[in-house]
Design a binder for these strands. Structure first.
Lengths: 341, 341
DNA sequence: GTGAAAGCGCTAACAC
DNA sequence: GTGTTAGCGCTTTCAC
């Protein structure tokens, strides 16, 4: 029995074969080894409790079998279902997902990314809109395949999977026009103070789609355009307060996040406003709360798990060399009518 | 300019020093190198865009600077704030968090854990109640320090940070007794079908605390004890339906998750039940929705971020050898009165 | 304060 | 099918 960690060497000795045979039988290519040898090897590994050292494997093979997802924070509701689906998909190919949180990190984003690139991930998954130039340069220099998820960027690094911000607005504007709301407002989340420009570009695209489609159908412009600084329930509540206090006429609000919309619904209940007659609320995302809420939230549903799964599938193709690069996939958005708009 | 990846070797050549000096200046110990040498080295690294290979570092030093968190799924609301705080704390010590999802994995849990241990993490963070014996053996054999979070296990691997299930129930029972509810019920979440025994042990402890404290104060037993199979809003809603349909008298329900409680509140609104007069609802967790909801949810607040932070701090101590082992920390639970009970 | 040599545990490339 | 050799890019150890 070997002392500290059990290595290939130890297994090889016990099985009476060479290190290389053990490596093949257990790790790189079981089919390259004769049945009987494989069995003996497996038995030896089992007996010793052998756990392969993936760091050594990564170093020797230049393949880490690690895929990194760069997210702003674990607490943003969109990530859980996407990451979950992505991880499941990657697990099928024995790829391990490493999640890196950029926003609330004490290091600068670039430093974090540098650390993460130091693990030599085989690929990167990230959202488009939240990265500094230094970060982008680092990523580009690394040459690692990138898949961007959520809203589709104007110029993707490489592959991208998600929806167009303009379409988000269009669906909302069209729906509110069809339902004959006369003075609809658009209220947008803003998850990141430090990235005002990029966030407002995202919000601007959504607003463009919203106002264009509403105007096309009604001949009139929507009424409001507010950017919030938060993205939690509280921000949605305070939007309702602001709109009520402003005395501006407004009969419907499109929030570009179900969390904001839910906060708004709670505040309406508190104020005794009836939905949708006093005010209508339309959300975005199709998060679990949109279905659970009473009244059920009208929302634009994003296929979250599908985004994660497609990202995983695309990654695997990129890594196996079956796909060269640069594929952009647009997933469908569907309006799901509830009782709030 | 070197061709592919830039290595220590390349930086050393450019700076006119040995590999070893670069390693010290950049990675292991800047203070061991003369000021001027360090500056030259840093400049050379910068110029070449050097990114250290952490896999090689891990192999040579036997320290991966990787901490693995084993969670059941990203979608369980308790994890986001805990993981977020943990990651922040670890980042301070240049430790990278690797999150592994056990539940919905296509591999068996043990296989996943084996893969993860193959990355040779310096430490493990996990919840106590969801692991197979094979998993436990693997972890024990690895000799890696473990910190268990959330509810405190009867016999911890090593360190543990969280609260006692019995206390959860006691606080709830005491509160409902104080508020003079006469027929309180306890409804428990059950996140994991495959672990019925362990989950029911958790639920049983909570129930024991609940019924004991209620009985001590009132001389009567609580009325119901239901285990749900889910842990989402829908499960909370259906609990309300079941209780109403059963025609049993019940004037208050303690749900051991705010998500269940919120689902219950929504269902009450739908049915036109007034809270807390027709029925009172008490939650557990202190999740964001408990504050946002109208009416505001009465709940037992768990210091989530504190758990994550303490776990991080304890890990760092374990890794630096300042702490030998086996410390259990109990965090405070506080009842936060809202308008539902 | 700095460097040379050896090796961490694995795999690529080639032999047989 | 299996074994041999030569590294992967770092850090350890020990010498200077």
């Amino acid at each position: 029995m070997p002392k500290g960690r059990v290595t290939l060497q130890d297994v090889a000795r016990l099985a009476g074969v060479s290190q290389m045979t053990v490596s093949r039988a257990l790790l790189t290519g079981p089919h390259l080894v004769a049945q009987s040898t494989r069995e003996r090897t497996l038995a030896a590994a089992e007996e010793l409790g052998y756990v392969p050292d993936l760091a050594a494997s990564a170093l020797a093979s230049r393949r880490s079998r690690l895929v990194t997802a760069l997210i702003s924070t674990f607490s943003v509701s969109i990530f859980a279902p996407i990451i979950e689906a992505l991880d499941q998909e990657l697990a099928l190919a024995k790829l391990q997902l490493l999640v890196g949180q950029t926003s609330y990190s004490t290091e600068s984003e670039a430093a974090l990314v540098r650390t993460i690139l130091g693990r030599k991930p085989d690929a990167l998954v990230m959202t488009s809109s939240v990265h500094s130039d230094e970060t982008k340069d680092l990523i580009e220099a690394s040459g690692i395949p990138v898949v961007e998820i959520w809203d589709l960027p104007d110029k993707p690094f490489d592959s991208a999977i998600g929806f167009r911000n303009r379409v988000v607005g269009e669906i909302a504007g069209k729906y509110l026009a069809e339902r004959h709301y006369e003075r609809p407002a658009f209220v947008s989340e803003n998850p990141d103070h430090s990235q005002k420009d990029l966030m407002s570009r995202r919000a601007a695209s959504r607003w463009d789609g919203f106002s264009d489609s509403y105007r096309t159908m009604t001949g009139r412009y929507p009424q409001h355009f507010k950017i919030l600084t938060g993205f939690d329930y509280e921000a949605g509540s305070s939007a309702i307060e602001q709109i009520i206090n402003s005395n501006e006429l407004c009969d419907a609000i499109f929030f570009d996040s179900d969390i904001l919309a839910a906060g708004a619904v709670f505040k309406c209940q508190e104020l005794g406003l009836r939905l949708p007659t006093d005010i209508a609320v339309l959300g975005f995302g199709g998060f679990p709360i949109s279905k659970a809420l009473y009244p059920v939230l009208s929302t634009i549903e994003v296929p979250l798990a599908e985004i994660g799964q497609l990202a995983g599938i695309q990654l695997k193709q990129l890594l196996s060399g079956n796909l060269v690069s640069g594929k952009t996939v647009e997933v469908p958005l569907t309006l799901r009518k509830g009782a709030t708009a």
